[in-house]
Amino acid sequence: MSEAVKKQGTGSLGLGISVALASWAVPGLGHLMLRRWGKAAVYFLCVGGLACAGLAMRGGIFGADATDMFDRLGFFADMGAGVFYFLAHMIQTAGPDVAHASGDYGTRLFATAGILNLLTVLEAYEIGRGWRT
């Protein structure tokens, strides 16, 4: 089906949703399903690199129990990183340390990884729908 999408510029709602969900769960997976090998690799490396760097710098991860709007926005951004969000506690064994500048940078890097991944999700959805070649 992905070849048809590529050649004819046609897709379907089902394909769009499935590749969007795959892209969100694992960065680049949706593009892999659409046989966009290069994009899949770049998105996985870029989103994964930013997320892992953020965790290595002991950045904070926003939880679902956010109390104010900024924390909720942070949670939304962090959730965008998909599998990296759910594995964050396994990757970041030392826990967050936002008392130091490095941890603060790490928080931003992880949130950026989530936002970037949401952009790739939108692109995968558009390709899946046939709106973009």
């Binding site: 998105y43 870029c46 930013l50 710098m57 002991r58 500048a101 890097l109 950026t112 970037l116």
Partner: peptide, 19 residues
């Protein structure tokens, strides 16, 4: 862990610009 602010900025800028 030991990245300076500027080094973190370089890494951030590179990854985001490539994406």
């Amino acid at each position: 862990a030991g990245l300076t602010h500027f080094q973190a900025l370089l890494f951030f800028a590179l990854v985001v610009s490539v994406t």
